[in-house]
Design a protein around this nucleic acid. Sequence first.
DNA 1: CTAGGGTTAG
Length: 604
Amino acid sequence: MSPALLPKHVATVVKYQRDPIKALAMFNSVKNENGFKHTLLTYKCMIEKLGFHGEFEEMESLMSEIRMNIDNSLLEGVYIGAIRNYGRKGKVQEAVDVFERMDFYNCEPSVQSYNAVMNILVEYGYFNQAHKVYLRMRDKGVIPDVYTFTIRIKSFCRTRRPHVALRLLNNMPSQGCELNAVAYCTVIGGFYEENFQVEARQLFEGMLEQCICPDITTFNKLIHTLCKKGDVQESEKLLNKVLKRGILPNLFTFNIFIQGLCKKGALSEAVRSLDGVRSEGLTPDVVTYNTLICGLCKNFKAVEAERYLHKMVNDGLMPDAFTYNSIIDGYCKMGMIQNADQVLNDAIFKGFVPDEFTYCSLINGLCCDGDIDRAMAVFNDALGKGLKPTIVLYNILVKGLSQQGLILQALQLINEMLDHGCSPNIWTYNLVINGLCKMGWNIDSGYDFLIENIEKGFIPSLTTFGQVLNCLCVEHRVLEAVGIIHLMVRKDIVPEVVNTIFEADKKEVAAPKIVVEDLLKKSHITYYAYEVLYDGIRDRKLHKKKLPTRCSHDRGTSFKWQPVRQYAPVASEEKLLQHMCSAYLKSVLGYFFCFYSTGKIMEV
DNA sequence: CTAGGGTTAG
């Protein structure tokens, strides 16, 4: 007599089988075993597995099956799992559909289901819809719990309203909901995000005074918001406070700190914390190395990054796509294409398959190098190897072509991308316009536009600054370009770190440099423009010289894009040009709603 | 099971 096959055995096998389709085959085959019947547990494991791996068709058909075999009122957990997995893959509509159908299938959603769907809506920025779900939940008499509150708090923080989030937090006790560290830290993070340091610190203190202390996971999330901005100092202050309460940092904590140190350019410190990890009894992992390597590369230290690549291999860690792509990108951004090639070839030899990121970096590097022919060749080669081109990759090429003055080829490529089902976006248009500026067709109106708006108190986006600066640098109009940098400093359009310099004279010298470096880091300006500007801001003759103004003519026409063409465009091109013109005007309107690295919201 | 943890691209 063979031992009976139990549901828990089937569930275990489903869980540990890596391949979801193989798991499903096994799941189906045991239906024929004598006396075996699937239970809620086995169905749930199988549905979860399929959903986790994005096998949604199979998941849906199994959900139909479970409805026929299991009491429908018991299926909420299954639906929540499906909602979450749809959410993980960005399929928001599908997640909502599952939720909407629940009570049709005799499964009354509880607060957990409402929370699950609200959370996905908030995560993907559908704040109004999330609020509607909340109102419906109240309407149905479902009582919100601490998760509901935290999700709503998050929604307020994401919409840059931390003070509203705080009010909601303070209302929780009166609604019978106890505060916890996650709710607190969500609000605190919201304050930091918007640079309300004082409020954030106060609330953190207040939380500890209530004897509510975050666990390491919650704490890590909080300092991550700080470190992403490069504010390691504040993170350290917070860390010291929780250390006293017996919280121990883990590898995540260190990795977050390394990211922050790189972000603020403290590279030697970042490198040193690698040893710090070990002295805490922890072992650096691939992410630790990748974070460091990526940080070095972003700071134009790809050679050193490559040394760490070898070090991680010596440590017995396997470099992954992330590692290689970071270094390749780093070399390309420095114009060291040969080194990038070398790293790529070594990687391929070790079995690495170049992906979209790799090609983006490489093609971008070649374009910046002026080697548009090889860039196109690599692109076509990648297409031949089955790479699915994306809007990003197209934009890189459009940029490359435009910058070479090959506007017609750029337009041709935009036509091709339309054929490939890729729609041009605002970047695409700006890139072509940028190319036109470079050819001297429209730089003056771009410049006027920028200066005029600043004088009126509107602050254009950093992208716009970058475009105009690039154009001016290419034309060697250094005086105007440097003038813009000084204007940015005067108008406080500067990265946060500038405000940590208290001595005025120090600030005056350092701020322009920081602005230029920040523009480069965020890729708003080219490396060439960076060099021109860097020299320019050190030139005493240019320093403080009054900015030339030339905004006397009618603004109504000053930034209209009117390309001069040597010959009549073919019909399809003309249509495209019209389309692009209207899009550009839309983008001009868009400037009024931009927000900036300084965290200010522009008011119209 | 539902809020909260780390690394790349225009």
